[in-house]
Design a protein around this nucleic acid. Sequence first.
DNA 1: CAGCAGGGGGCGC
DNA 2: CGCCCCCTGCTGG
Length: 404
Amino acid sequence: MAATEISVLSEQFTKIKELELMPEKGLKEEEKDGVCREKDHRSPSELEAERTSGAFQDSVLEEEVELVLAPSEESEKYILTLQTVHFTSEAVELQDMSLLSIQQQEGVQVVVQQPGPGLLWLEEGPRQSLQQCVAISIQQELYSPQEMEVLQFHALEENVMVASEDSKLAVSLAETAGLIKLEEEQEKNQLLAERTKEQLFFVETMSGDERSDEIVLTVSNSNVEEQEDQPTAGQADAEKAKSTKNQRKTKGAKGTFHCDVCMFTSSRMSSFNRHMKTHTSEKPHLCHLCLKTFRTVTLLRNHVNTHTGTRPYKCNDCNMAFVTSGELVRHRRYKHTHEKPFKCSMCKYASVEVKPFLDLKLHGILVEAAVQVTPSVTNSRICYKQAFYYSYKIYAGNNMHSLL
DNA sequence: CAGCAGGGGGCGC
DNA sequence: CGCCCCCTGCTGG
C-alpha cells in the first residue's frame, strides 16, 4: 500500500469528519447514552410515507437486506450510529506511558457519505469496478476488530433508512473467523423477518502483503442451506450438535479437509475427525468427584488433577508446581526469566501474555474502516444491498503499523 | 499472576 | 487412536 494512497484515504475520512462537524449540521443532539443522533426535520407523516413506500416493498421481494439511502438534495452525508452491543474495550492500564485512554461509549457515531465513483475504495483489482461504496469512519475510538465484535447498525436520521424502522444489522467479528449475523425485525411484514433473520456470514481475517501494514477482513455469505443449519452464537450445545448431525466434510483439491461448521482445515484426516468432535456435545469422560464431563481423557485428567492437587509440572527455581505445562511456562516468565515474548511493534512495551491488537490500544490509533456494498436503484431510491462479500481494511491512520 | 478448559500438531503404537 | 506437548482464551483475585 503506497503512502499516497494512505494519505488519500485519510483525507477522505477527514473530509467526512469535517462535514459531520460543520456548524450548520447542528441538528445533532447529544443523548444520554453518548450516541449522537441527528434530528429529523421532516414531519412524522413524511417519514412514515417514505418508510412504507417502494424501496421497502422491493426489499421483501428481493429477500435481501437493504440499506436504503434516500437521495437528498441538501446533503450527501448520512449518519449512522454504531451501537455497541458487546463492548470489550478496557482502559489502558499503562497510564505512565502517556498513552491515550479509551473513552468508553455506548454508541459510536459514524458518517456515511453518499458514495461516488472511486470513493474511498482502495483495493485494486476487479472489486474496484464496483464503484459505489459506503465509507464508515469510526471516529476517535480505539477499536480492534475484536472490540468491534458486535455492533448494531441503526439508521437514525431521515436520510438513512433501512428496510425496516426496527431493522438492525449486527456485525460480529471474531478474531480470525467469525460470523456476521444479520437481523431483520419487521413488525409490519413477518415474512421479511423470517426470510432475513439470522443470516450468517463468515468473516475471515487475513493480513495483506507481508510488507503491508493492513488487515483485510473478508466477509463471505454462506448459502441458504448453511444459513438454515448454522447455529447462532448463543444456542445450546444440543442445538449445535443437532446442526452438525448432517455435517459433511469437504475435501479440497489439495487433499485438505474443510470443516463445514467452522473455518477449520487440516491436511490430516485424523486431525479433522478429532476436530469434528468439538462440534458435538458428546463428553464421555466423567469426573467421579464432581460429575463434570469432558470430551477427552486429557481434559479429564487435568481436571482431576485440580481435585487431587496433582501438579506434575514443577518449577526448578521455586517450589511452585502446576497442572499444565503452559501454566509453568507462564509462571517462569513472570517470576524468573522475565521474558516478554509479546512485544509492541511501535514501542518498547512487551507483555508475557498475548494481547491482540495491543498496539492500537496503547497508541490510541484511529481505526477506520471502509465497507463496500453493492448498489442498485429501486424506484429512484438508491439501495445498498449487502454484498456477498465485504472487505474491511483496518488502518492506523497515516501511521500504519503491523497489527499482529 | 494464577487456575482451568479447550484445541491442534506431532508422534508412537 | 491415544497421548504428550504446546498454545490460546477466559476468568478471578
